[in-house]
Design a binder for these strands. Sequence first.
DNA 1: AATATGGCACAAA
DNA 2: CTTTGTGCCATAT
Length: 123
Amino acid sequence: MKKRPKLDPGVILALTAQVPPGRLTTYGTLARIAGRPGGARAVGQVLKRNPDPERVPCYRVVRSDGRLGGYHGTSAAGLKRKAARLQADGIELIPGPEPRVRNLERLLFKAFRTPGRGQIKRL
DNA sequence: AATATGGCACAAA
DNA sequence: CTTTGTGCCATAT
C-alpha cells in the first residue's frame, strides 16, 4: 500500500496563480488537479492562509455551485471584498443574500499547467 | 487519540 | 428552486 501524499499547499497556490483576470476556478477543481478529489475543503484551508495575495488571486476561486465561498474566513466583510474584486475583473454577480456568479461554466479557466512537467491537466 | 471547525461537493428529498 | 444530510481533507484544540 502506498501512503497517499498529503495535499501540497504549494501546488494549490501555484495553480491559483495561473487563473487569469476575468476567469475563475473552483475549490473542487483545484483539488482534483492536485490529485486529491474530495479535498475541496482542504484547498480552502490552504487559500485562507494565502501567504502571497499579490501573486495568488485567491478571490478567483469560488464554489462549484457559483456561490462565492469565503474570503479571509467566512466573515461578511471579507465576502464583500471578494465580490468587489470579482466585479472589478468584470465578473457579473447575481445579487442577493447568497450572491452567485453568472455564467460560471463559461468563465472557468481550463488550461492549467501541472507543476513540474508543464503538462496540461485535462478537465 | 478524539473532537470540532473550516473559504467544499454532491445526492436526495 | 431550496434545504438537509453525508462524505471529504487538513488543521487546531
